[in-house]
């Protein structure tokens, strides 16, 4: 008797008020014949054991899902896309292209050995110099607040500009081992350039707005 699935429900944990509310809404919509696919998904997720907080599609979740979808298509980034790519690399790891391999290999073989530096002494010297500078600075550097503000703004401006992504050659976007085809391929190339620079453009906008 205990094997009958409906009886197993007896042992199931009691649903919370929130769970019941979501389920009631979904079932009500079904009965009224107005259930859409999203609600159907919500019901499925509930039945399959998802957290109720995840069952109903909120705007926030929709936005996240859209961002993930874009990131999977190579536009922008999303932490779950990182996981997705990691899964792909575990399932079907791709070969390393010969040019990149050769570059990495030559980099290691032609690398000069690092010179050993006695870091405790160097850092001690730097700390001493910094201390003396601080002392001298407080004694000699007297500027008005306006001059300070002007200077700091002036110094900040190139820094802000420098953090923005500048135009540059697009050749890194293409496999350099292969020459372009004599005929065709322009649309794919410009498509790739647009996709890459669109992401730079968004990053620049965020920097300009001070969000990044």
């Amino acid at each position: 008797m205990k094997n009958r699935p409906e009886l197993e429900l007896v042992d199931a944990p009691q649903p919370s008020k929130k769970q019941l509310a979501v389920a009631t809404e979904v079932v009500r919509a079904m009965v009224g014949g107005t259930i859409d696919r999203l609600d159907n998904e919500a019901l499925l997720a509930l039945v399959l054991g998802d957290d109720v907080a995840e069952a109903a599609i909120l705007d926030e979740e929709r936005a996240e899902a859209d961002a993930l979808s874009l990131a999977l298509a190579g536009q922008g980034t999303h932490e779950l896309a990182e996981l997705a790519f990691a899964l792909r690399h575990a399932a079907l790891p791709r070969e390393l292209d010969e040019l990149t391999h050769e570059r990495l290999l030559r980099g290691a073989l032609h690398r000069k050995p690092e010179r050993r530096v006695y870091w405790p002494l160097v850092s001690g010297m730097v700390a001493l110099a910094a201390g003396v500078l601080l002392f001298l600075g407080s004694a000699t550097l007297e500027r008005t607040k306006r001059e300070e503000a002007a200077l700091s703004l002036q110094r900040l401006a190139p820094l802000v500009a420098a953090t923005r992504i500048a135009p540059r050659s697009t050749e890194a976007l293409f496999d350099r081992a292969l020459a372009f085809e004599l005929r065709g391929g322009e649309s794919e190339r410009v498509e790739r350039i647009v996709a890459s620079r669109a992401s730079d453009y968004r990053a620049n906008r965020f920097t300009r707005w001070g969000v990044k």
């Binding site: 575990a90 070969e95 390393l96 990495l104």
Partner: peptide, 27 residues
């Protein structure tokens, strides 16, 4: 090197950029 990249580094690090960095460091 290519075998290390494909069977050891890329699957475990999960990113081509990281796997390439790791291969360079290995070398």
């Amino acid at each position: 090197g290519p075998i290390l990249y494909r069977s050891v580094l890329l699957p475990r690090l999960g990113s081509e950029a990281m796997a390439q960095d790791a291969l360079a460091d290995t070398y």
